[in-house]
Design a protein around this nucleic acid. Sequence first.
DNA 1: CAGCATCCGCAAGGATACTG
DNA 2: CAGTATCCTTGCGGATGCTG
Lengths: 120, 120
Amino acid sequence: MTAIKESSTIQENRKNILEQCPVMYVMGKIGGFWKPIILFHLSTGSKRYSELKRAIPEVTEKMLIQHLKQLESDGLVVRIAKAVVPPHVTYELSEAGNQLSPVIDAMAEWAFQDMQRDYK
Amino acid sequence: MTAIKESSTIQENRKNILEQCPVMYVMGKIGGFWKPIILFHLSTGSKRYSELKRAIPEVTEKMLIQHLKQLESDGLVVRIAKAVVPPHVTYELSEAGNQLSPVIDAMAEWAFQDMQRDYK
DNA sequence: CAGCATCCGCAAGGATACTG
DNA sequence: CAGTATCCTTGCGGATGCTG
């Protein structure tokens, strides 16, 4: 937590903090609004693209595919495409993604507790 | 996860999903880029505003105070101001904020594991 | 079915300067 | 010390239409 070196740009700063702070490292990977919910849905088993779309109708296709790609390139999600016509693509959690489940679960558990508090 | 009612606006949709998906409920509260790191720093004990600023030099004052306010109004953080000159303000986790620690910890733990994986 | 390309508005966020 | 206020840029994210 000490000695952040003087840096010139915000990007470098952000890079530094990402390397330095474990929490931010995580946020760099699952920080997008939709990423956790995608992971949440995939945590119950692998899903096809269209299934995800139906499961999360609020997200636009652009956002969905964009986040899926990022999750994939961040090694959290595995894309499995069967070379058939019509295309058949499924997404599932990688091992790293699976190990993230405790985080998602902890979030969910906290949410239920927090919802019951009476502050509004 | 079923029967999301037809809604007109994206805002309503997002509202629905926030109410419906526990994970998104959490993201609504700690989804900002800096919020988790603020909570992370506060999880080691209450801190003064200036201490937080020094601990997270990358965040601008605007973002810091903005997120602190949101965290406060979301009941995760308690602001304690001593009416002295010069001002003395400390921030600390509320009980709800404290109960969020497992999430933060799980994130941190996952981060360390993930960093050791060899994908880049 | 599973995407990609393009356009575009709007709000999140950064820099800077000022104040109780 | 602990903020506010203002301006301005960036890019997230929505809508629509097209493709292998």
